[in-house]
Nucleic acid binder design. Structure first.
Lengths: 173, 173
DNA sequence: CATCGCATGTAATAGGTTACATGATTAT
DNA sequence: ATAATCATGTAACCTATTACATGCGATG
C-alpha cells in the first residue's frame, strides 16, 4: 500500500491538511504518480496519526487540521524509499495490452501499434513543453527541482515507448 | 478494470480453463503485465459468462470447465484495445518514489537515484539475455513473436529509466 | 496406497470508488 | 445575500488479497 507513503512523503516535504493533500493529488502528483480521493485521504491520515507516524500540528478555521510527520514517520518513509522495490503484483495496463496483441489479427495489431506510437509521441510533446516551461522559469544554480526531474522521467518513458512501437511496426513489415 | 480484458484476451488466443489462466498469470504475463490470484479469476470468469462474453466450451475431469470467447466477447476485447487509454487514476509506484525524492536530504536523494540506476541496469541486462535467447531460437521469416516484442518493450523501458537516473545524478552534481 | 498436481471454491479482511451530505468562511 | 470554495465526513458498493478448504486423478 503506497498511499500512506505518498502522504508521509508530502507531509515530510511540508505540513499540510487533508484538503491540501487532496489538491496535490488533483494536480501533477495525481495525474502521473498516484491518485486518491479525499474519502481515502482522511481515514488514512487518521490511521497514520493513530500509529504515531504523523501528528496534528495545528488547527485552523472550518475544522482544518494541519498534520506533520513525526520522527517515526520520517524513519518509515526513508525505510520504504530505500527498500528495493518489492513492486508487489504487476498492474501494468500498457504491457497487458502488448501481451494481448497476440489475440488480434496482424492487421489489427499493426493498427494498434501505430496508435501506441502516435499516443506516446503526443504525450512526449506535451511533456517536452512542460519541461521547456520549467527550464525557462528555473533560476540557475538552484537546488534540484524534483518536478523537473519527474517530468524528464515521463518524457523519456514516452519517447522509449514511441520508439519501441515504431521498432515493432518495422519488424512486422 | 483490466482483469476481465486480460481474461478475454487470453481466451481469444485460445480456449482455457480457470486453472490454465491461473498458470499464465503465474508466468511472464503475471510478472510483467498483470497479476491475479485464482480467487479472482474464477468469479470473474463466472461474471463474464453471465454477461455472455465467454461461454463454457467443454467440461473435463475434476470439474474442469474450458471457456471460449463468444463473438460479443471478441468485440468487447477489440473495443477495449482500440479505445485510447483512459488509463484511469494513476497508480505508479516508481513515479511516486520520484516525487517523494524531494522529501529527502540531497545526499539521500542521490543515493536513491544511484539505486534506481543500478536496479534498472540489472533488469536491462536480464532482459537483454532473454531477448538474445529468443532471437537465437527464432526461425527467420516467422510471423511476429509477441513475447519477443513485449520483452523488447521491457528492455527499452529499463534502459530509459537507467539513463534517466544517470542524467538526474549528473544534473545534481 | 501415498503423494503430487489438477481444479475449484468459501470467508475474512483490506483497499478503493462513487454518491451523498454538511457546515464554515471568503469573495462578489 | 449569494455563490464559490474550504474542509471534512458517512454509507454503499466494488475490487483485491490472504488464508483456509476440498475433492479428483495420475504417477510411482
Amino acid at each position: 500500500m503506497s498511499l500512506r507513503h505518498a502522504l508521509l512523503g508530502m507531509l515530510a516535504y511540508e505540513p499540510s491538511s487533508g484538503y491540501d493533500l487532496k489538491k496535490r493529488f488533483d494536480g501533477d502528483l495525481g495525474e502521473y504518480a498516484w491518485h486518491a480521493p479525499h474519502t481515502r485521504i482522511y481515514p488514512e491520515l487518521a490511521k497514520l496519526a493513530d500509529e504515531g507516524l504523523i501528528e496534528v500540528a495545528g488547527e485552523g478555521a472550518r475544522g482544518r487540521r494541519t498534520y506533520a510527520v513525526t520522527d517515526a514517520g520520517r524513519a518509515e518513509l526513508r525505510r520504504w524509499l530505500f527498500t528495493p522495490q518489492d513492486e508487489g503484483p504487476a498492474r501494468n495496463v500498457q504491457v497487458l495490452r502488448l501481451f494481448l496483441l497476440s489475440a488480434l489479427e496482424p492487421d489489427d495489431a499493426r493498427q494498434l501499434l501505430r496508435m501506441h506510437a502516435d499516443d506516446s509521441d503526443r504525450e512526449a510533446h506535451k511533456l517536452s513543453e512542460i519541461v521547456a516551461a520549467l527550464d525557462a522559469d528555473a533560476t540557475p544554480g538552484e537546488p534540484p527541482q524534483f518536478g523537473r526531474v519527474a517530468a524528464e522521467f515521463g518524457l523519456r518513458m514516452h519517447r522509449a515507448r514511441r520508439d519501441w512501437a515504431r521498432w515493432a511496426l518495422d519488424r512486422m513489415g
